[in-house]
Design a protein around this nucleic acid. Structure first.
Lengths: 220, 220
DNA sequence: CATTTTACTTATTGGTGTTAAGTTTGTCAA
DNA sequence: TTGACAAACTTAACACCAATAAGTAAAATG
């Protein structure tokens, strides 16, 4: 009995340890991938490099991730997690819906400018990756988007912003999102626009957006 | 003398023919590349495929283009040319600065939705390609952008739009550009947004933009 | 102690861009 | 007309890449 119990304990502890080690290696791979991805960018990112940097053969990665896209998806999740934190901080640091929209807008731009490689992966390069499965990683995306829609809902409720006719809150979120996304996307993609121009334009940009939302759009 | 002249004529005609044939092959390569690029997208586009599709070996391409990026650059130029035509048509089909901005905005969206692969290459994927050299292909880009700034200048002159403080016409162009670019970019990159949402949002989007420009932006 | 499972590696396949080294074909002067 | 030369094009090769299959050594299990 006693022996039986002990061996059982050992067995389960051993299984636990192996699971932990497996999860650890997965983390090591993901961290190395994230670093190398940011360093070399999407185009020059390879599984072989990741494997070499952590002292494993390339095929080992396939024991922890389905394929390259799956690994990239989780690199993107890492980005979404950080992104969510930044947005939440911006939200918390401001008062009232309008200021919150403004603050999150600024934070959004700065995140994009500070992490262009990640930003591209998350929002520009492989959007279809996000349709793969729906694991726990999606929470961060939903959270980040929820911060935006929360500000909008608060603004609608308080009456300080008005949605154009026939546009629900979710679409309104997409509208606001697209506004600042355009600026970020151009800044990190088109050298002619660039970071300085984006920083110069963000305030007028937000002015226009908030003014447009404030008055409601009846034209046309 | 007569023989001398004839041989000279033959010689120059021959050289001309060779130059023409060379240019023709270059065109054939470029057309095949453009087609295959649109079919397979950036990621699955290869020189070997292009070569195979026109019955040449892959290395022949290097006799007419510096490298893959150079070929892609000229594929992008093809896109810019078409894009410029579409924009010009939209401009010509409308009267007055405001309607022209609106018309070009709509046309811009529809171009992006109709040619997402090209749009990505031109405005999202490899903007640094445009910094390579400055051949004749740039005219189309400049032209397309000029259509936008022309409408803006006309609007400023007529007093129907006002630029935010400290924003010159060129930056104002970038601002307007970024507005509609954001919508297009999200539509073709993020499945959650999608074409339908973009088409639904474009009018409110333009309303907000034009309303914001119309009143001037004094708020901070 | 034997068997099976786990973690990992090596080998291989079929693809990529790019360069170097041929080969054929047309041009041109003697 | 012929021999040198250049242009157009191909084959071979290199160094990568993602991905799969087959193999190996150690650990876990009964």
């Amino acid at each position: 009995m006693k022996e039986e119990t002990r061996s059982q304990r050992i067995r389960s502890a051993s299984a636990e340890r192996r699971a932990r080690q497996k999860a650890e290696l997965r983390r090591v791979i993901l961290d190395a991938a994230t670093t190398l991805f940011e360093e070399h960018g999407y185009e020059n990112f390879s599984l072989r490099q990741v494997a070499e940097s952590i002292g494993y053969s390339a095929t080992t990665i396939y024991l922890h991730f389905e394929d390259k896209d799956d690994l990239l998806l989780h690199v993107a999740f890492e980005g979404f997690r950080r992104f969510g934190e930044v947005m939440q901080a911006a939200y918390d640091g401001a008062d009232g819906p309008l200021d919150r929209l403004r603050a999150t807008g600024r934070a959004y731009l700065e995140f994009g400018l500070a992490h262009p490689v990640h930003y591209r992966l998350m929002f520009m390069q492989r959007g279809e990756l996000l349709d793969r499965e729906t694991p726990e990683g999606y929470e961060s995306i939903i959270d980040a988007f929820a911060i935006l829609t929360r500000s909008l809902s608060e603004g609608l409720e308080a009456g300080v912003i008005r949605s154009p006719q026939g546009v629900d809150v979710e679409s309104l979120g997409a509208l606001v999102w697209s506004h600042v996304h355009g600026l970020v996307a151009l800044a990190i993609s088109m050298p002619k626009v660039g970071r300085d121009t984006a920083r110069q334009l963000i305030e007028p940009h937000l002015d226009i957006l908030l003014a447009g939302l404030g008055r409601g759009a009846g034209a046309s």
